[in-house]
Design a protein around this nucleic acid. Structure first.
Lengths: 213, 213, 213, 213
DNA sequence: AATGAATGAGTGTTCATTCAT
DNA sequence: TATGAATGAACACTCATTCAT
């Protein structure tokens, strides 16, 4: 009964470097935007050589994507922490959908990070998918939702969310459409319009603060 | 009986150029961000030579500011169009404050346009000031507000709005603070907390669409 | 009856710059190879700013192609100077074909300049085409050749030349195949094998020296 | 009764690595040129780690030299195979000189491999020297040549060959000088101009193909 | 005032080489 | 000795800005 071999020094340094790079990029890119951040300053902030960044990320773009995914991971955990106490599994999913949509709309960094919707949608799908899918399945088991292919529903939802949020942040849509968007996305779970409206109208506890680095 | 002395050809072309440049920059910078937009492509879109831009704007930064101000001007007009029909002058101001705050929070372009809060606050103060100040004075005359130096109150409000919106868009504050922020800003007019809450709670008609270029 | 408007100062400087760049690149790239030459040293040798090079050539590659074409142009002129005195028009073409082939094989710079055969073949086709085609047509008119579509024959010849020379310079073929290659290429003109052999066997005056820059 | 002490596993692997590296470099550098080839891809093609290359070659330059020498070794063997059947020992040397000159002129890889003449001359001197010197001595013993210090003559010849070939490949000399160059180099052996011309004029069987890797 | 060629500082990225393991 | 992660110098290329015309 051996444990995992106690991660060698090299592997440890690599993990540290990778994380340090993502954190440094997260801070700097959030401040100045992706274009404003230079690879050199990120490298220096992470205390590695200029070329080392490219041992971990093939390009600045890939680093930006890693930062985006890290932020999504964070968000997912903050959502978990709130929904932990919910009794109704359907409400867990509803809270998640709403929160993701609001963040996509209001956290500039999501857009500042990448201008390409597909990338954001993809990251959202992959990083938050496990939770969303689990929630839908739980709610379906509890008889609240009626979803067969939860992954598909989540795929549809992420693209819809990103598309709408893009339209809002570029002034094509008014932010007031958020409420109705949530209702429509909940309808996709087969809960019925009444149920969807009721879910969407429930009071929503505020999200905890962003995790420190 | 002549009209305004028929603006000479030169002056006409200059106005056209300036406006064309702002419109071109608005479109391109909205799409690609300030950094992503090049002065050359803006010049070409506005159908002027590369160097000509600098006859109108001292730098790319100054052009971005002009675009920001243009967008604020637009927003002010769209607000006017809605509040035109309001009976209560206090509500006019309340609607304006809330709308500016929501836009500052949700329209990425404001931040994408400039990273410096002071500049945004300043532009907001100057471009929307005439309306806001007028509204406060009207409401004061009607006995709803009690404001002596409306310009000062508006100055305070703009900096507060921009600061809070920055905190929201960078994840330091939850978007849910918006409601309370509006109430507190209304309190500054001397309407009293009860009145502020009541004003803030009134239904808000949606803003009209952005003006075409 | 006006002359060409006496080329303005701008146009003059531009021509000077372009030529200076090509000459500088020709010298430096010949010495160190394309990869070994840096755009900055070429710019400095041509006495222009680092960025200016890109006003004339979209990329280093394009500059290398321009140098290649310049060298072909030179070669064409040196061939002309020799063949000027030939009586037999067929011999003019024969001399040209042989000389191009020998140069392609022996002047490292052609290969050092570009590693891509198609580009070399294309440059050869375009820069020497006018001469080669004219020669074939003259020889056809004189009853020596029987060529309908001279451009096509020249197209075939250039690709064949470049392909064979590549094989020779990479050691796949022995340089001794050059003689037979010339004969076969001459056969394409319809002069018949005997005639081709006779043409190929004639003594060949040496080419003059490369033109100074 | 043991043979050569059965080269230990270590020594065997070392020889294999060194050879594999040279072969890999030969192929890749021939394709892309020295600058175009990266040490990493060479290492991978030879199936060793990136750092391992430096246990065998101090630098990329030194590896390129090793490749050059390997190619010379090859060439020497291919020459041997042809001259094996020659009766006149003087002709063996003559064939060798001519072949080296032609190759230096026509095989781009020699120049692509290294830009410094001295290095090429040196490699030629060392790798082909044993054969050339032996041939001169044999021919002297047979009364055909009159050479006292064969190594010196070969030293002179190699520098002359490389110098002329450089001039040809850079367009300073016409390839037609090759014939006369061979004659003059043969004269250095004391065979007399007549003899040299006669030797140079003899038909030359083609070289066999390059050895596969 | 308008033009667009010239400029050069600044950036992302590559890669030969080193070195700790 | 073999490894491959780390390094940083070097380079192609972009683009805001200037300035001669």
């Amino acid at each position: 009964m051996t444990q995992d071999p106690p991660e060698g020094r090299v592997a440890r340094r690599q993990r540290r470097n990778r994380e340090a790079l993502i954190q440094a990029a997260r801070v700097i890119m959030s401040e100045k935007g992706v274009d404003g951040a230079t690879m050199l300053e990120i490298a220096e902030a992470a205390d590695v050589g200029a070329g080392t960044v490219y041992n971990y990320f093939k390009s600045k773009d890939e680093l930006a994507i890693a930062v985006l995914e890290e932020m999504m991971h964070d968000l997912a955990q903050r959502i978990e922490r709130v929904t932990d106490t919910f009794d109704d599994p359907a409400q867990v999913y509803a809270y998640g959908v709403r929160t993701v949509l609001e963040n996509a709309t209001q956290d500039v960094r999501w857009r500042q990070l990448l201008n390409r919707s597909e990338v954001i949608a993809d990251a959202t799908f992959r990083r938050m998918g496990p939770f969303a899918i689990r929630d839908m399945q739980t709610a379906t088991a509890a008889g609240r939702f009626h979803v067969q292919d939860a992954a598909l529903v989540w795929r549809l939802a992420t693209h819809a969310i990103v598309g709408v949020s893009l339209a809002i942040t570029t002034g094509q849509l008014s932010p007031t459409v958020i409420d109705e968007t949530v209702v429509r996305l909940l309808c996709m779970t087969g809960i019925g319009e009444e149920g969807a409206r009721e879910l969407a109208a429930r009071p929503r506890p505020a999200l905890g603060p962003e995790l420190a680095d």
